Structures are given as structure tokens and as C-alpha cells.
Simulated scan of single mutants.
Amino acid sequence: MDDKAILHRYLSTRRADLLGKLEGLSEYDVRRPLTPTGTNLLGLVKHVASVEFGYFGEVFGRPGSLELPWLADDAEPDADMWAAPGETREQIVELHRFAAAHSDATIDDLALDAPGVVPWWPDERKHVTLHQILVHMCVETAHHLGHADILRELIDGSAGQRPDDPNLSARTPEGWAVHRARIEAAAVAAEALAASD
């Protein structure tokens, strides 16, 4: 497998993992803000799809047929980070799939050293290659997947990429509660030690 295929596989896997964070949740749970800045699951999917569409489209002179009003110059700030009531989960998931298919066509058609221009980056960095953008979008997608991991765990306790994720310790909910309590006790003890110095 060559470098482009490896990067493409990583990106495709992270995309699927991100969409998987929506599975089995109510309309409210996929939309509700769980951080002080409003981070929510459906907004993360909308954001990742939107930026991927731009990076593999406009950057390489391959704009897509969709208009994304939440990215317009006069759009409300952060409109790509949440779903308005009239935007359905199905529409946003379809946007994510459409952006992925558009990106996949760019990745398939161009060589890793194909040049592009990121107009929203500073002049000294805006000239890029497909290789750079593939790495950038792998990182961007994984970054937001990490946010989604935490949000999903806060919503219903689900952790990892799938129920049998080998990267997680095999613990019962009770075992996780004991583990969490041990970490909390360590934090309290460390705070007491720091205060006594």
C-alpha cells in the first residue's frame, strides 16, 4: 500500500468512526451542547464535512455543487458547529457522505504532490500539496473525533470506537466507577500535597 492509500484509509476510518458517534442517540442528544462553547455531536459532523468539502474541493480547483450557507462571509459565527432546527440529522449525515465522496474523487484523481492553494491560510503557508491536505484532514478529523468520543461518553457512557474496542480496558460499569473514584482520590491527594508545600 502506498502513502496516499495509507493516508486515505486513515481518513476514511476516522470519518466512519465520527458518524458512528451518532448511532442510537435521540435527536436531542446528537444536538445538545455539552461544553461551555456549545460543542455537540451533530455540529462536529457538520463542521468536519464542511471543511473537508473545502479542502479537497476549492483548494484544488475542484469546487463542489453544494452551497454551504453557514460558511458564507455574512454567516453567523460558528454556524458550521451546530444544527439549526430545520437542518435534519439525515441532511447533515448526507452532507458528510457527499463531502467524503467529493474528497475521495480528488484524492483518487490527483498525485500526492499535486499543488493547491488554501485561500483562507496566510500567504506564506497557502501553497500546499495534496499530501499536506490529506495529513491536515486526517488530523482535523481525528481531533474532532476525540471531541465526539468525550461527548458520547458524557451522554450515555459509550466509550471507544465500537463496543469491543481493544484499546479500552475490559471493565464493568462498576469497575469503571471504582477506577474513576481512584483517579478522583489521587487528584484530591495531589491538591492537598501542593497546598501543604
Score class of each variant (00 low, 15 high):
Tyr10Glu: 12
Leu11Tyr: 13
Ser12Gln: 14
Thr13Phe: 05
Arg14Val: 14
Ala16Val: 05
Ala16Cys: 05
Asp17Asn: 13
Gly20Arg: 14
Lys21Arg: 12
Leu22His: 09
Gly24Tyr: 11
Leu25Asp: 11
Leu25Ser: 11
Tyr28Cys: 03
Arg31Leu: 07
Pro33Leu: 06
Leu34Phe: 11
Thr35Asn: 08
Pro36Trp: 10
Thr37Val: 12
Leu41Cys: 03
Leu42His: 06
Leu42Cys: 08
Val45Ala: 08
Val45Ser: 01
Val45Leu: 01
Ala49Asp: 09
Glu52Trp: 10
Phe53Trp: 15
Phe56Pro: 08
Gly57Met: 04
Val59Lys: 04
Arg62Pro: 13
Ser65Arg: 13
Leu66Ile: 02
Leu71Ala: 07
Asp74Leu: 06
Ala75Ser: 15
Ala75Gly: 08
Pro77Leu: 01
Asp80Gln: 11
Met81Trp: 05
Met81Pro: 00
Ala83Lys: 10
Ala84Arg: 14
Ala84Cys: 00
Thr88Ile: 01
Glu90Cys: 02
Gln91Lys: 11
Gln91Tyr: 05
Val93Cys: 04
Arg97Lys: 14
Ala100His: 14
Ala100Phe: 14
Ala100Tyr: 13
Ala101Asp: 15
His102Cys: 07
Asp104Arg: 13
Gly116Val: 02
Pro119Val: 09
Pro119Arg: 15
Trp121Asn: 08
Asp123Thr: 05
Glu124Thr: 09
His127Gln: 15
His127Thr: 05
Val128Asn: 03
His131Ala: 15
Ile133Ser: 05
Leu134Glu: 07
His136Cys: 07
Cys138His: 01
Val139Cys: 03
Val139Ala: 09
His144Pro: 00
His144Ile: 00
Arg152Gly: 01
Ile155Asp: 01
Gly160Lys: 03
Gly160Leu: 01
Gly160Val: 03
Pro163Leu: 01
Pro163Met: 01
Pro166Phe: 05
Ser169Trp: 09
Ser169Phe: 05
Ala170Pro: 00
Thr172Lys: 06
Glu174Tyr: 07
Glu174Gln: 09
Gly175Gln: 14
Val178Leu: 12
His179Tyr: 14
Arg180Thr: 05
Ala181Pro: 02
Ala181Arg: 10
Ala185Arg: 12
Ala187Ile: 06
Ala189Phe: 07
Ala190Trp: 01
Leu193Val: 10
Ala195Cys: 04
Asp197Gln: 11
